[in-house]
């Protein structure tokens, strides 16, 4: 009869008061690092080659801030196109339709298999390769023929070049995300009478987003920096292109490299914060948010190493 579920009063154990474990190694290492950093900074501040006066003069130069705007636009437009195209390609690759599947495979083969710099040079030459845009029956006299030069400007050629290359990578990221979603989800929505496209759009892709967002954030940051390659098109109004132009004018390259780096760094920092909030948004319904490790910065991305572990090859599944 005596089932004691409550501790008798006064029997509370005393809280443990232990002396905290000391980490002397950490302190020593930190002191050495801070000292080394201080030496580097003091030295850099005095070194004439860095040209800090020119850095200060140009860091908020109107040409530079305009160029920063172009870099941002290149990043935003090409990522938007790449994400939409990437999702489309990923869904195509997972479709049952062999025709659609092969098209997606071919696209990936070409755009992932060649360097982005080379692709950008190609896009720059596209108006040379195809001098007119013809509408009509192939190999006969065209009905309408438009001069391709002046049809698209270099900015958009740069966007297309960056976007089409990036789409191939986005497709793989999206595909990994889709495959990480439990097979039961597709079964449940199929059993409810939803079509394959509805299942993808309403059930699978929203869940895949959680896996897709972190690497996509990395891709955006990477894209921001890849825009510096658009000089291959050639488009030279972006941050790096402009910085180089100015440095040629003033015969002093290093301060302008620092100017460009400072802008890139500022942008990537903002993007990292944005990524943190996006990740939070898409982890809805997955229990509590991951506990942030004490002392960790909020911008730490969750390692995506967990994704491949949950990827189940659907072909395997079918063999059950």
């Amino acid at each position: 009869m005596t089932r004691e579920t409550v501790l008798p009063a006064g029997d509370e154990p005393e809280p443990i008061k232990a002396i905290r474990l000391k980490h002397p190694g950490r302190i020593v290492f930190a002191v050495i690092l801070v000292a080394a950093l201080a030496i580097f900074v003091i030295d850099a501040a005095q070194r004439p080659a860095y040209g800090w006066d020119n850095f200060a003069k140009f860091v908020f130069d109107k040409r530079i801030s305009q160029a920063a705007g172009f870099t941002l636009l290149l990043t935003i437009y090409s990522m938007l196109i790449a994400i939409v195209l990437g999702i489309t390609l990923a869904v195509m690759r997972l479709s049952d339709n062999p025709v659609v599947k092969s098209v997606a495979w071919l696209y990936l083969w070409i755009f992932r298999g060649t360097p982005v710099y080379v692709q950008l040079v190609f896009w720059g030459l596209i108006t040379t390769i195809y001098q007119t845009i013809d509408i009509g029956i192939p190999f006969t006299q065209p009905w309408i023929s438009i001069e391709s030069k002046g049809f698209i400007d270099v900015f958009w050629l740069a966007v297309i070049g960056l976007a089409l290359n990036e789409a191939a990578y986005m497709a793989e990221i999206v595909r990994a995300g889709i495959l990480s979603v439990d097979q039961g989800q597709e079964e449940a929505s199929t059993a409810l009478g939803m079509s394959w496209i509805q299942t993808m759009r309403r059930v699978i892709i929203p869940q895949a987003m959680r896996i897709i967002i972190p690497p996509t954030g990395n891709e955006v940051i990477s894209m921001l920096k890849t825009t510096s390659l658009v000089t291959a098109v050639p488009f030279s109004f972006d941050l790096y292109g402009r910085a180089r132009d100015i440095s040629v004018e003033i015969y002093d390259p290093i301060p302008l490299l620092l100017v460009a780096s400072a802008w890139y760094l500022a942008f990537t920092s903002v993007l990292m914060v944005g990524q943190y909030f996006l990740e939070k948004r898409f982890s809805r319904g997955v229990g509590q948010a991951r506990p942030e490790k004490k002392g960790g910065t909020p911008t730490e991305t969750v390692p995506i190493v967990t994704a491949p572990a949950t990827v189940v090859d659907r072909g395997e599944e079918e063999k059950r």
Partner: peptide
């Protein structure tokens, strides 16, 4: 399938809804 309801061993509720 619309007219046939199915309940699974592992529920398969949509976790984001």
């Amino acid at each position: 399938r619309r007219d046939i309801g199915m309940v699974f061993q592992r529920f398969n509720l949509f976790p984001h809804m």
